[in-house]
Nucleic acid binder design. Structure first.
Lengths: 205, 205
DNA sequence: CAAAGATTTTGCAGGCAACGCAATCTTACG
DNA sequence: CGTAAGATTGCGTTGCCTGCAAAATCTTTG
């Protein structure tokens, strides 16, 4: 039950077991990395905890990074595409809904922030994963954008905001999609922020 | 001479030799990866081409990725901080100048684009490197920003624009800093772009 | 319910990246 | 020239990750 939390509705025993194993591996990876740090956690340790052979580990996750962060390749949940296609408002708003609108998003996001905070070596990994998702997002966005260029721009903006929310320390009660949108707006608003005068800088330096 | 192109102005023989070695390694790595692909190029091959031991390789670059992309840890050139401190205009403009204002930037950027295009497996690596540089950029930006939050926002925006220019295929004659700024403006402008109607989407899907 | 069929798990063997250490060679400097 | 500082190298180790083929497990069908 502890482990099965999310592994419901499998078609057969096989499906259920797979989901369970995937979850067990991620759980073990997350816990160990959280406790010992990423570098000093070996795949063998994870496998031992999850009760699978090290070879099976790679049947579920392509790398230690992916297992720790629990990203099985698809960084978007199932409802994402649907949410995007039925969203209204601006293109950027729709992207925010798609990315952060799922019910699991907030929880996942918190876990992830915690892990990255305690373990900054994972930050680049995170960036790399976001970059990897970029292409898929652009393809989706292009469906409802005026042009592919516009889709790229919109995705760039939203991903920047997403990166921001990962690094930010504030924990808000707002729905995640709304928070993401407000990050977007904050970024846009900073475009014309003035420089502090150069003399002041000399003093600091 | 072919190799020494950029290894000028060393203080002593030692400095010059180091610069030369670093360049030789990067040159070899770049060429081999460009020809054979990233995965199928081994560090031993690179070392053989550059005439150094595999152990020395790691004295210069922390990873194969870094060697191929030629990023020696500092992704900013020497003049960067100075450029930023003496820039005028808005905070975001100053960051653009700092990042893309150097004379080597355009050339580097082109090489990099070529490599990543031919070899998409490197795209995540690129994202990871940009994320890694994030912290340093924010520290610098904070010197002339109203607050640290504002610095984070500005850096997020500029990095998003930078990612965009890497992926874009257009080759312009504008100075790099100006191009970066125009990417920034394009991103800001997309904030309120409308969605194409949902019916149209159904048709597409 | 048993045997054939489909998948998943596992062990084994190996390639390659990356680091630590200690010996050797090169440059700098008095 | 000789000594100190620093760079290069070889060797050995650990750990990530993959391919392959045998063993174990679930599914289906007669």
């Amino acid at each position: 039950m502890t482990i099965l939390e999310n592994a419901e509705a499998g078609d057969g025993l096989r499906e259920r077991k797979k989901a369970q194993t995937r979850r067990a591996i991620h759980e073990a990876a997350y816990r160990l990395v959280d406790e010992q740090g990423f570098e000093s956690t070996t795949i063998d340790q994870i496998c031992h905890q999850a009760d699978v052979s090290s070879r099976t580990f790679f049947n579920y996750y392509p790398s230690k990074n992916a297992a720790a962060l629990g990203l099985s390749g698809e960084s978007l949940d199932d409802g994402a595409a649907t949410r995007f296609r039925s969203a209204s408002g601006s293109l950027v708003d729709a992207l925010c809904d798609m990315i952060a609108g799922g019910d699991q998003f907030a929880a996942r996001h918190l876990r992830l922030k915690r892990l990255v905070k305690r373990n900054p070596e994972l930050m680049p990994t995170l960036g790399s994963l976001m970059t990897a998702a970029r292409g898929r997002l652009i393809d989706l966005a292009a469906e409802r954008a005026a042009s592919r260029d516009e889709a790229e721009l919109a995705v760039s903006l939203v991903l920047a905001a997403l990166a921001l929310t990962v690094h930010s320390t504030t924990e808000s009660d707002l729905p995640s999609a709304v928070r993401l949108r407000s990050s977007v707006d904050a970024i846009v608003a900073v475009r014309n922020a003035p420089l502090r005068s150069a003399e002041l800088v000399e003093t600091v330096a």
